[in-house]
């Protein structure tokens, strides 16, 4: 299987501070596979995601190494080049759907501006493309949603809208940082189903979570991060049935202790 997103020796530190926040990270996200990243709070998961889509402020963070999408290094691209890739070839699903949308703009405007930023489509064509993307997400009354302000929709609906936006430009990679954390169990299940659908259509997914239940359900491979480093990686079976480090065992155990019932359902 072709490697789609290759990350090599990724280091992130604060400008003017030698201590790395993320250290020597190397991993691949393959097309048609879901890579899960787990790790305790502050282990650098979000920083890694933000580095991939160039969201880290250059004045604050020093990023080195290489992040290659289909062979092209995002880190060395000009701003214009990377902006053409980000949001099109790599898209992001944010953690908190309730705050991710501009409260002064309708859903349709968000969708149209995203399409227009990456394609030559007219407004009308963009609107049609966005509507069909929403329909694919099993959303009802699409025209109404397009014409709604974000605050009138529920968190679960907004998360599905966000997935529709992520999918509509046919990306090769989707990054989801704690994309299910803010949702209830029912909506969580809907989103996880969508993740599997994305995998089936050949998209590579990077799913960041602190929830082993999510990993168990959807991930093919798992990275375990601690203090900015990968301390263990392998297939989901290896990590669950044969964890090598104490840290992973502890993470698994705390998960079992807290959510035993939920895991049984999994």
């Amino acid at each position: 299987m072709k490697n789609s997103l290759e990350i090599k020796d990724l280091n992130i530190s604060l400008v003017g501070n030698k201590n790395p926040l993320v250290q020597n990270l190397s991993f691949d996200v393959r097309k048609g596979k879901i890579l899960g990243i787990v790790g305790e709070s502050g282990s650098g998961k979000t920083l890694t995601c933000k580095a991939i889509i160039k969201l880290l402020n250059e004045k604050v963070f020093k990023v080195s190494g290489s992040i290659k999408l289909d062979g092209n290094n995002i880190l060395t691209m000009s701003e214009k080049q990377s902006r053409a890739v980000i949001g099109k070839d790599i898209s992001m699903i944010m953690q908190n759907p309730m705050t991710a949308f501009n409260p002064m703009m309708k859903i349709g405007q968000h969708i149209v501006e995203t399409i227009k930023a990456h394609t030559e489509l007219t407004k009308k064509q963009a609107y049609a493309l966005g509507s069909s993307a929403l329909e694919e997400m099993n959303l009802q009354r699409v025209a109404e949603i397009m014409n709604s302000y974000p605050h009138t929709l529920s968190g679960g609906m907004l998360q599905r809208v966000m997935i529709a936006i992520a999918l509509m430009l046919e990306p090769s990679i989707i990054i989801a940082d704690e994309a299910t954390t803010a949702l209830d169990v029912k909506n969580q299940a809907i989103i996880l189903e969508q993740f599997q659908r994305m995998r089936d259509i050949g998209i590579g997914l990077l799913v960041v979570t602190h929830d082993f239940g999510v990993i168990a359900q959807v991930a093919d491979d798992v990275l375990v991060m601690k203090a900015g480093e990968i301390i263990e990686q392998g297939s989901v079976y290896q990590i669950f049935y044969n964890p090598k480090t104490e840290y992973t065992k502890e993470l698994l155990q705390s998960r079992f202790l807290v959510d035993e019932e939920q895991l049984c359902l999994v």
Binding site: L55, K88, M94, T99, A100, N102, P103, E113
Partner: peptide, 26 residues
């Protein structure tokens, strides 16, 4: 620093549009 600005960047929206449509409008 609002989430919706980060999300707009993640969608590849141009800086000038982020400033006028997202930041200034709010």
């Amino acid at each position: 620093n609002k989430d919706f600005v980060i999300y707009a960047k993640a969608r590849g929206i141009s800086n000038s549009r982020i400033i006028w449509q997202h930041i200034l409008k709010n």
